[in-house]
Design a protein around this nucleic acid. Structure first.
Lengths: 76, 76
DNA sequence: GCGGGATATCCCATATCGGGTTATTCTCGA
DNA sequence: TCGAGAATAACCCGATATGGGATATCCCGC
């Protein structure tokens, strides 16, 4: 988890949320999760598996595949 | 974890490995992990986050993005 | 400063992980 | 059909991570 690639992933998720003009509470609400859930994965206190990542991307209003592509281009 | 999408993910990873003609021991070796690691994620006893998925895809000799695309087409 | 909204922290019972070891199951040649 | 190996599953169990409600902080505009 101290693998620098996780930092890139978090940065991307945070950037996507801000670009969408949404708060952690907004995203949490859309996913039926507490705000601490969003806070945690954005700060790397918790990981997201592939399925969760898909759900988060959707909640962010982003294109999941395009988001993954962006990430892989940065860390692959 | 009883979300059916996880089953689709596992099926895909197993199919990719078999298509590549590799064993769990082969993949585990390439990743510097024990065979039980591969056995676990293939049976859903353990989840893979995005970074781990990337590493697994590479070990499988598959194109990570293409693999994600295939998965999202099936479960998104 | 003050009121709120936004985000970070806490707590802690429960669930998951790591990985070496062992048990099962599968494959196939003789 | 039998047995040797290969391949995969299951086990153990201490170490870590997770869930989420509650609370504390931080950050602004006014």
């Amino acid at each position: 988890m101290h693998d620098p690639r996780y930092a890139a992933l978090r940065a991307l998720l945070i950037a996507e949320r801000e670009r969408a003009g949404l708060t952690q509470v907004d995203i949490a609400g859309r996913m039926g999760k507490p705000q601490s859930y969003v806070s945690k994965y954005e700060r790397g206190e918790r990981r997201l598996d592939l399925v969760e990542f898909l759900d988060v991307s959707k909640a962010l209003g982003a294109d999941p595949l395009a988001t993954v592509k962006k990430l892989f281009e940065r860390i692959a």
